[in-house]
């Protein structure tokens, strides 16, 4: 029916339950996106067969593609559900949870590991304190524009999902963590931790695991030049290795 939107959703009642498919038909509206379609199910939790069911569970928050919450696989592609406009998708629209993270329930997954990785690469600046000590260093507009590309990473997990090197056989931290290490290493005040960050990047699950598939840069909803960061940080690890070698 033209005035309905068909959804086919991979559901799962809990982390250790078996997945199953359920289909839904929701009323069409102009500019409808996938989050709005899922909200329609909450208003009327009935599946396409007309049976009562529990509302579908998923994560979302800002609905303007800046918080990173609503990542899921939509017709096979990892992306943000809020900016996935129904009229631009073939139906039935197939919704699945991201596959590289443990499922909590339905489309909701646990992406905590992304933040653990940020901890491992020390993605922060070691300031002396949170009081007034005057301005930071002057930064040229061009430098800021480049850094801003990377500082917009919202830890949505799309690059991790798309990366063939993130799988059960490797421990690759994924492109986002590498890019953040690069970002903080490039900041004048981030310099105090450069060696520690590079050590993490050269360690287990680090840049050596990158297979240069370049899927990440295509998957990033924010267009962050991830492959540039991967290449740069890779070069820096070589320089670092040489430095360590000369010192020993």
């Amino acid at each position: 029916m033209a005035n309905q939107v068909l959804l086919k959703i991979r559901r799962q009642a809990g982390p250790s339950e078996l997945p199953y498919w359920e289909e839904f038909a929701v009323p069409h509206q102009p500019n409808l996106n996938v989050v709005a379609a899922l909200m329609e199910i909450q208003l009327n939790p009935v599946n396409a067969q007309g049976q009562r069911t529990s509302p579908v569970v998923w994560d979302c928050s800002c609905l303007e593609e800046v918080c990173g919450a609503c990542s899921m696989r939509i017709n096979g592609k990892a992306r943000q559900a809020c900016s996935a406009l129904v009229d631009q998708l073939t139906q039935p629209i197939v919704l699945e949870p991201l596959s590289k993270f443990p499922v909590v329930r339905d489309l909701m997954v646990d992406r905590q590991i992304l933040f653990e990785h940020l901890k491992r690469v020390k993605a922060w600046i070691e300031v002396d304190g949170y009081y007034d000590m005057g301005p930071g260093p002057r930064i040229q507009p061009k430098t800021q524009e480049w850094a801003y590309m990377f500082s917009r990473c919202m830890s949505c997990g799309c690059c991790t999902e798309s990366c063939p090197q993130v799988n059960s056989r490797t421990s690759f931290m994924g492109p986002a963590a590498m890019a953040q290490a690069y970002l903080f290493n490039s900041h004048p005040l981030g310099a105090s931790l450069v060696e520690e960050r590079l050590a993490a990047v050269m360690g287990e699950g680090g840049i050596a695991e990158c297979g240069k598939a370049q899927n990440c840069v295509r998957a990033c909803p924010k267009g962050i030049p991830l492959t540039d960061a991967l290449a740069e940080i890779s070069r820096d690890t070589i320089k670092q290795a040489l430095r360590v070698w000369r010192r020993s």
Partner: peptide, 17 residues
């Protein structure tokens, strides 16, 4: 200024301010 030191990417003037 505190956020500036935390690495916050404020837009800049040509002089870097």
């Amino acid at each position: 200024y505190l956020f500036d030191r935390l690495g916050m990417q404020f837009n800049r003037t040509p002089e870097g301010l």
